[in-house]
Design a protein around this nucleic acid. Structure first.
Length: 280
DNA sequence: AGTGTCGCCTGAATGC
DNA sequence: TGCATTCAGGCGACAC
């Protein structure tokens, strides 16, 4: 499940193979994913790829025709590099294949099709429907104690839902929201506007820390950000509370029989994991 | 405007 | 064994 660190790692992998190359063909194997592919997506032959970057969980492939190819991995999306002289036979969920002039193919596979691919004019990207309402990047200075305090003061929703709101801050998904709240010692159920100044300061710092740590883990566990099978961006994680219901949390000193260990609750129709002792 | 809920989609895991 | 059900979740749509 790609969150910001995985997407960042995918981008760093793409940055090693895409810039400077030219597109031989983009092959589409269905009409669309979350929404229909734009017709122009299939007509990018001979267009040059000039760069790669990321905004929130969107991968931005910069093109020489002043357009940007936007890719979102959704929940189950993967990008795999096949160096096979553009001979890759599309599998069941290989929805889009970008063939490069050097024979390398970038295969976008996504069983659940929550992902998307779209084209936008680069200079208008900020006004794109998907980008217009995005909050700040969590790793930028703009995402500060002062900013978050101001943003949360009118919010009565649970703090966990608040930090997952992309209008508050982008890139924090279900896993890292639980992880950052654990590291901050904050109960995920507390009202956002009731979180104290010192706790908000800690939370901002821990959100940055858990994301940075995960990005670092991605880089170090993948050779050059690309696995031997060509897959980009997925790596082993070690979580403190996520998916550890009934188990010990990180550095746990509890008697599990007494405390029940890590708790799983539902917030916004999604699982939240927390330690009832450290996040009281 | 802020908040809460639902649906999209498939495959893995679980239940009977 | 095999079929049905549940769950996973990023994000927009929608209702209140």
């Amino acid at each position: 499940m790609p969150e910001l660190p995985e997407v960042e790692t995918v981008c760093r992998g793409l940055a090693k193979v895409l810039p400077g190359r030219s597109i031989r063909a983009v092959k589409l194997h269905r009409d669309g994913m979350r929404f229909p592919f734009p017709p122009a997506l299939g007509k990018l032959a001979h267009v040059k790829i000039t760069g790669i970057d990321r905004r929130a969980k969107y991968i931005l492939i910069r093109l020489g025709n002043d357009q940007t190819l936007i890719v979102h991995l959704g929940m189950s999306g993967r990008l795999v590099i096949h160096d096979d002289n553009n001979k890759h036979a599309p599998g069941k969920h290989d929805h889009m294949i970008i063939e490069l002039d050097n024979g390398v193919s970038i295969v976008f596979n996504d069983p659940r099709r929550f992902g998307l691919a779209d084209l936008a004019v680069t200079k208008d990207l900020e006004d794109h429907k998907l980008f217009a309402h995005l909050g700040p990047e969590p790793l930028e200075k703009e995402f500060s104690e002062k900013y978050l305090t101001d943003k949360l003061k009118s919010k009565k929703i649970a703090i966990k839902l608040a930090i997952m709101d992309q209008q508050v801050v982008v890139g924090v998904g279900n896993i890292y929201a639980s992880e950052a709240l654990f590291q901050s010692g904050i109960d995920p159920r507390r009202a956002a506007n009731a979180v104290k100044p010192a706790e908000i300061k800690k939370l901002v710092s821990e959100i940055k820390a858990v994301l940075k740590k995960a990005i670092k883990a991605g880089g170090s566990s993948l050779r050059d950000y690309v696995q031997t099978d060509g897959e980009l961006g997925y790596f082993q994680h070690q979580f403190s509370v996520y998916d550890k219901e009934g188990q010990k949390c990180q550095n746990c000193t509890c008697t599990i029989k007494k405390t029940g260990g890590v708790q799983r609750i539902t917030q916004g129709a999604r699982s939240t994991f927390y330690c009832p002792v450290k996040q009281a």
